[in-house]
Design a protein around this nucleic acid. Structure first.
Lengths: 146, 146
DNA sequence: TTCTATGCAAAATGTTTGCAATCAC
DNA sequence: GTGATTGCAAACATTTTGCATAGAA
């Protein structure tokens, strides 16, 4: 799957008259190797290991391209920092976050999705997207509380 | 109801050894007169009409007190700006936002709330709070699209 | 050669904080 | 008086942008 994710990015560049540069290549590859959620800053750190001359502005600019190409998605956990995750080949999901240790679980509940649609329609809205994030304490942190 | 909202704030100040100042009074009153969602900046603008000497920092500081006292709640619509709304005497709700005109509807769906709880439990989490925001096009904006 | 991409540093944004002066109790 | 409160400006953190240089097609 991640084999042709880069291909998708190349197509996107091509379709928009943008070119693949060593910097973009390095950033995309680092992105593809990075699991879970990470900030632009964190990705920049990883990118700079072995490519110290890449500027953070380029990381931000490329991350924007990654989102536009559909490879990445930005996630907002409400703490003012934009995090990113893989979007290519990943189905829609929401998040459940432990407020103590920060562990994040991807969740998906068909009945919630269905009700969201119904609620929107009930108000005359056409639903485009949504953002849902549940905050609580994970099992491990609950145990530690005792 | 908004009659004793100020009383609630006074009690909060008292309980925390804080004092009511002209600035805080003006900010709280302006807050109570302001419906819908607004940013710290917007509230500051309103506050400064007739009290131009109140600094924006005081608005931020007082807004924090308002949230802590339970009079206000902060809402994050994912665009990096913290908005505030009235919380005193208002039940929990989520939001449905028109992406075109920005109109916001307060929504509440018991079955979504119940499922959120169940999903959290299924992952071993204790749910504390959640954040849900639906984005779409309102009826009026859909009509204009045609 | 032409237009895009880069790195850097400066700017922009929204919010917080240090501090000396001021005010509430 | 004593400690909380204020306004201001500087500090912050994250992200964006202007610009001159370098690079891709």
């Amino acid at each position: 799957m991640s084999k042709n994710a880069e291909g998708v990015f190349l197509e996107y560049l091509d379709a928009n008259a943008l070119s693949m540069t060593p910097q973009r290549k390095r950033i995309v590859e680092t992105f593809l190797e990075t699991e879970h959620h990470f900030s632009a800053e964190q990705l920049g750190q990883l990118v700079k290991q072995g490519a110290p001359d890449i500027g953070q502005a380029t990381v931000y600019r490329t991350l924007k391209l990654l989102v536009e190409s559909g490879l990445a998605a930005s996630v907002d956990f409400g703490d003012g920092i934009t995090l990113y995750e893989h979007a290519y080949g990943h189905a829609h999901h929401d998040h459940l976050v432990c407020m103590k240790c920060g562990v994040k679980v991807e969740i998906y509940d068909a009945s919630i999705e269905a009700r969201q649609e119904e609620v929107a329609i009930a108000h005359g809205y056409t639903l485009t997207r949504h953002h849902m994030c549940l905050f609580g304490l994970c099992a491990a942190c609950q145990a530690k509380e005792k």
